[in-house]
Design a binder for these strands. Structure first.
Lengths: 223, 223
DNA sequence: ATTGACAAAATAGTATACGATTTGCAAGGA
DNA sequence: TCCTTGCAAATCGTATACTATTTTGTCAAT
């Protein structure tokens, strides 16, 4: 991409020293390696990345807008703490966004979409490793919504799934298992293949509502 | 500057220097005073606000995450350009979020909510000024969703309404008028007062879909 | 021992400075 | 006339440096 002739075409972002730092911290927060309330010391991060504080601050500011870190008056940034309530509320937003995306996507689905999604579910059934499960789960949902054609909506869904990821990962290891989600995934896909938008949306909504109940129970026990 | 030692004597700012800049630029973008593609020169903004470039850059980075400005490699920031398609897609997201919020809100509504909302609609009917209309319209929707209790959802809705604000303002002056929206607002409120969640959501969805069609037509003519 | 005051260290926030990149423009050649 | 080519000015991005605030540690006084 030595082509300097790409002024807009929003697909690619300009690189800045802040970008790798932003990506690194974001990944560590979302994976749970940086637990809530961890202070994010600017000097330390800057030293580790071999830069000054300025790009570090810009990275942290971006994470602040995404609600992943919190700035306090003269104390700097810490990893944001999501309460039980907020996690459940994120799942309510998931219901809103994903049901709408599916509703818009079903009419646009073509046979190859069905084939690929079914193939994914078969892989799913064989890989029982949890780390793989999480990745495939996210991928399944993304494949369902992709045909909706609304990039901003897809981005919002992706953002939500990342934020909820660590909690859902815990869930499958400790409580839910794979049985129920897999059956529900099949139901959703069948409705899509039948072209029945309402049934597909209803199945998806039930799926997320069930997840929400399990998260609620899990958090109740955990706390 | 000679007295650089005392940029803001005595005024203990609970916020960083970036915050007022962020608010100012955001307001000017959302109101349309800074049209799309306007370059945002860091030195100039810094001079106008009496600060250095550092807080300016942080403000711009925050706006970048919110999709209001775009950074390009060594060219700096410009006001983001929303295409027709993207504006219509934002309305699809509005349908998702607002219908969900209303669905969650209706069961929580109490008599005083109804009274206040009705009072607002009466004010509405009398103020025919466009500037007032826009403000009251946003307020009406917010009052409907408030009882849902999901702060993150409410924040996302507010964000969307601000982004769409300038386009909807144009719409009411040039095309739609006040007749249809007001009737639909009444329908929605009636369903809420009857406690009929499904009817309320259906009415709201029809309301936003109608708006979407008008925006589409308006953009088609305008472009 | 507990508390309060105060000095010292650590950390945040921002201005200044400087190299790097882009842009505007003018002069020179096809 | 149109296209290079080469400065010069403008602008960006970030390292450095400095101030302001918070935190920590020490030492008396109760």
């Amino acid at each position: 991409m030595a082509d300097a002739t790409h002024p807009q075409a929003g697909t690619k972002r300009a690189t800045s020293a802040a970008d790798p730092i932003y990506a690194d911290i974001k990944a560590r927060i979302l994976s749970g390696r940086l637990p809530p309330a961890t202070p994010l010391r600017q000097d330390e991060i800057a030293r580790n990345h071999g830069v000054s504080k300025i790009p570090v601050r810009e990275a942290l500011r971006r994470l602040e807008v995404e609600n992943l870190v919190v700035f306090e008056k003269n104390k700097g940034a810490t990893v944001r703490f999501y309460t039980e309530t907020e996690i459940l509320q994120l799942l309510d937003i998931r219901i809103a966004l994903e049901c709408r995306a599916l509703e818009l996507a079903v009419p646009n689905m073509i046979p190859s979409d069905f084939r690929e999604t079914q193939a994914l579910l078969r892989d799913y059934a064989q890989k029982v490793e949890v780390s793989e499960w999480s990745r495939l789960n996210v991928q399944f949902h993304q494949m369902l919504y992709e045909p909706c054609g609304n990039r901003q909506l897809l981005a919002m869904i992706d953002d939500l799934q990342q934020k909820l990821g660590q909690y859902l990962r815990l869930l499958v290891t400790e409580a839910t298992g794979l049985e129920r989600p897999m059956r529900e995934h099949q139901d959703i896909l069948c409705a899509c293949m039948a072209g029945d938008v309402d049934a597909a949306v209803a199945a998806l909504r039930a799926h997320i509502e069930a997840t929400k109940k399990e998260v609620a129970a899990f958090l109740r026990r955990g706390a």
